[in-house]
Amino acid sequence: MPLDAYIDLEDDALLAQYSKGDAAAARALTTRLTPRIYGHAVRMLGDRAEAEDVTQDAMMRLWKIAPDWRVGEAKVSTWLYRVTANLCTDRLRRKRGLGLNDVDEPHDPSPSVTAQLQTRERMDALQTALQTLPDRQRQAVILRHIEGLANPEIAQILEISTEAVESLTARGKRALAQALAPARAKLGYDDDSI
C-alpha cells in the first residue's frame, strides 16, 4: 500500500492493517497517536519522564489489543485517551506534589524572542495552574480546551455523563481562573482588549 494511503485511513482501519502484519501501519499509528497521548500525559502529570512511561504503557496496551479490535465499534483515540487518563490517575494517586519546573514547553522558532518568552511564561503559568486542579477537573479541562475534544467523547473517556463533563469543565475553568490570578499581569492579556 502506498504511504499516502495511510494518511486517509481511520485509526481502526490502520489498526486492522497493523494486525495483519503491516509494518507501515505500525509506523503510521505510532506517528499519529503517540504525540497526542504524550501531550495529554505531560499536561496531566507535569513530568516528561513520567509522561513517557505512561504513553509507552498505553501504546503497548493498544498493540496487544489490536488483534481483538473490532472495527467500527469504538474510536481508537477515545479508547487510548481513556487508558492514558486511568494510568495518569493511578500515577497521581501514588505520587502527589510533583515538581512542575521540569516541564519543558516547546519553543516556537517563528516569533521574536520577546514573544517567545511571553509564550513560554504563559505555558508555564497554565501548566502550574493546571496542577492545582483536582485530577478529574484537570482531565476534563485539558481534553476539552487543549485537546479540543467534544463533550460526548470526553464523557466516554472519563466514563461519566455529558452533563457531568460540562459541570467538570465549568468548575475546572473557574478554578483555573482563580489559580492564574497571581500571574494575571505576567500573562499579558489586556482584559479590556479581549
Binding site: R36, K173, L180, L187
Partner: peptide
C-alpha cells in the same frame, strides 16, 4: 475571556512533541 484566549493559544500553539 482571557482564560479562553490563553487556552486557545496553548491549544493552537506548538504541540508537546516527544
Amino acid at each position: 475571556d482571557a482564560l479562553d484566549a490563553l487556552l486557545s493559544d496553548v491549544s493552537n500553539g506548538p504541540a508537546l512533541q516527544p
